[in-house]
Nucleic acid binder design. Structure first.
Lengths: 239, 239
DNA sequence: GTATAATTAAAACATTCGTTTGAAACGGTT
DNA sequence: AACCGTTTCAAACGAATGTTTTAATTATAC
């Protein structure tokens, strides 16, 4: 087995196992077992589990954000100095992601679900890695949106961009979590339909009227939980 | 130290540590150390780490969804048979959540961030637990939305509800993940402002025009990553 | 005050993890 | 064929984890 094959098989196996069970719960033994390679191969080819994770994201994320920036470049070139339509900007950013998420055979689907979940990943090194990988694309798209929406405060645009990212991430990665909740599972087989649905939702949200009184307060004040373990001490069975 | 105190201190410590480092990376030793109790206390009072996690969610989630349902009950009673305004329904569902998230002193803020991240938690037992805890509230709010939006296909409503949940979860829990990305950190100190911003975004998305052609396809086809490790095998330093 | 149950405490348990080791197998070059 | 760097392999390492055990301590009831 050639070196590149081994690397690839490890990455592919890790991708789907991380997606299924998370980073910590996925052991190197399961990864290498699933990939059909020796346990030591991970440390040999990547150096550590952490480095494996980074390489796993790098190999897809770099491409993804390059596509996004290229699409934005094309839009701005076509517009010739004039601001680009907001819906076009969103299509460039989210369309590429949904496209990748629709690619089930090549693993893009798995990766995008993993990525969506990783946005809220607590571990520091993943977060800082994502931050670096995303910084250029995010800032350029923000700038484009600010230009495209004169009159809208840029803070508001940032927040809405934040909301949109969340909606997309959940649409892709949280699908089965919420399918359990839903009595009738949502059909996510048609990537095109998801794209159309998400896009009109996002554009609706982006173009929503600005909140009237920004200092308007939240309905009522919250209470701490009501400890219910009434009297009876919760006994744990012993052997 | 009374039993109830020990339980409470464990739960509180676990909540903030789980939020900070995730479930797997948070050890019982850190939890009990942070709570100032003995290591064995967790297994004595809760039975297992898994059961601790479930109790942690139960104590807040039950109250949260009761509040949501009570708010919906009031709305429907006030409407007297007529459909409730969609924006009102959203306020009932998301307002309670944002309210809880604004409660920093009582731990509601920490919990809501943890909850948001947990929607995409891979581990099976957490998912099935959440599903059960949410099922009533979700189905009742869905029904209310379907009534409130005649003419809109219920599938579309379900999807948008899904999107909205994602936007809210990220607004609350993914905040610092995206703050790293953002060059200027978003100010989330004002819970009321967040609420107003989120609400107008959500209502805008919910009321957006329906996607024109639902079978419309995604822009271009995706490519697998471009393996960049040109020739040079990546050597790992050995001792 | 004494008996009885509930809780805390310290120590050890078995397992599992990521990583390292040193030798064997492989591939290409001369 | 003999060499040499690369890759694979089985085995082991030390550390850390959730859990259990047994004894000491505290609270509660009679």
């Amino acid at each position: 087995m050639s070196e590149i094959d081994t690397r690839q098989r490890i990455l592919d196996a890790a991708e789907s196992l991380f997606m299924e069970h998370g980073f910590e719960a996925t052991t190197l033994r399961r990864i290498t077992g699933h990939a059909g390679v020796n346990l030591a191969a991970v440390n040999y080819h990547f150096g550590s589990k952490e480095a494996l994770i980074q390489e796993l994201f790098r190999r897809r994320l770099t491409w993804l954000n390059e596509q996004r920036l290229a699409a934005l470049d094309r839009l701005e070139a076509d517009a010739g100095g004039a601001p680009v339509k907001p819906s076009r900007i969103l299509e460039a950013f989210f369309g590429v992601a949904v496209t990748m998420a629709a690619d089930r055979a090549g693993g893009g689907h798995t990766f995008m679900r993993l990525l969506g979940r990783t946005y809220t990943e607590p571990s520091a090194f993943v977060r800082s890695f994502l931050a670096e990988e995303y910084s250029e694309a995010i800032s350029r798209f923000k700038r484009a949106l600010v230009r495209a929406l004169p009159g809208v405060p840029s803070d508001e645009i940032f927040w809405r961009f934040h909301f949109m990212l969340g909606a997309m991430a959940y649409a892709i990665s949280g699908a089965d979590a919420l399918n359990i909740i839903a009595e009738k599972p949502l059909d996510e087989s048609d990537g095109g339909a998801l794209y159309a649905r998400l896009m009109s939702f996002l554009i609706g949200g982006l173009r929503a009227p600005l909140p009237a009184g920004l200092s308007q307060s939240v309905p009522t004040s919250p209470r701490k939980q009501s400890q219910k373990s009434a009297g009876k001490p919760r006994l744990v069975k012993r052997a």
